[in-house]
Design a protein around this nucleic acid. Structure first.
Lengths: 107, 107
DNA sequence: TTGGCATATTCTTATATAGGAATATATTCT
DNA sequence: AGAATATATTCCTATATAAGAATATGCCAA
């Protein structure tokens, strides 16, 4: 079987570097497709396809403005990713503490 | 062109649901491969292959214990994912504030 | 050494892309 | 209506899997 569908969930969607770049760009503010094309230098059809994936998994929202489509990030969905990685938080804190303790022991 | 390689970075590695399940299981404590096979009911070769990917991107570490291999999560790498999603944190806080303000306005 | 347990790797196959090219759709302006 | 602008979709292709089956490798015990 092949890999899971990118449209199946947010984790798959952000696995693609260009999609992460688009999200980071949109984090600054709401933007029309053309701005993304210009800023990231990705072909317009490619940008539209990536936006479609991001939209399907709920990582962005859109609204029409004349003939332009304004995209913006949907923080709630990004938050769900953040929360999953956050479940491991106490482990890196442990590791950090161990490093600290070793450092302090040397003084 | 096809999708990026799963071994290229941690984002791709965690895009696979079974690999996330393995990481969550390992979060509890260091475990031999056999425990993962039993707990998650995934074929042993499949588990080994997933662990290989996780190891390649640095999401887990291993050490040998007799004929068993003990895997554990590498929190540092998971932290890097957490930090990326964290760059959007202020946006979901904004959204939350807006929801709050609306709710308060109704009282 | 031989047997056996634990894990890893190889090979094959079905499938899901991601990019490029070409085209379609939607909307505004004249 | 017809042209121009902005964005989306379709078609095609090369590629990277992920699972399954079979096999290889590493290590311990008798």
């Amino acid at each position: 079987m092949a890999r899971a569908s990118t449209t199946s969930d947010a984790f798959n969607a952000v696995a693609e570097p260009r999609r992460r770049a688009i999200l980071s760009f949109l984090a600054l503010q709401e933007r029309p497709v053309g701005d993304i094309v210009a800023a990231l230098r990705i072909e317009q059809p490619s940008v539209s396809k990536h936006l479609r994936v991001l939209l399907d998994v709920g990582l962005v929202d859109v609204r029409r403005d004349g003939r332009r489509m304004l995209y913006r990030i949907n923080a709630e969905t990004i938050k769900s990713l953040h929360e999953w990685t956050g479940t491991f938080e106490r482990y890196w804190q442990h590791q950090l503490n161990r490093v600290k303790e070793r450092a302090e022991g040397q003084t």
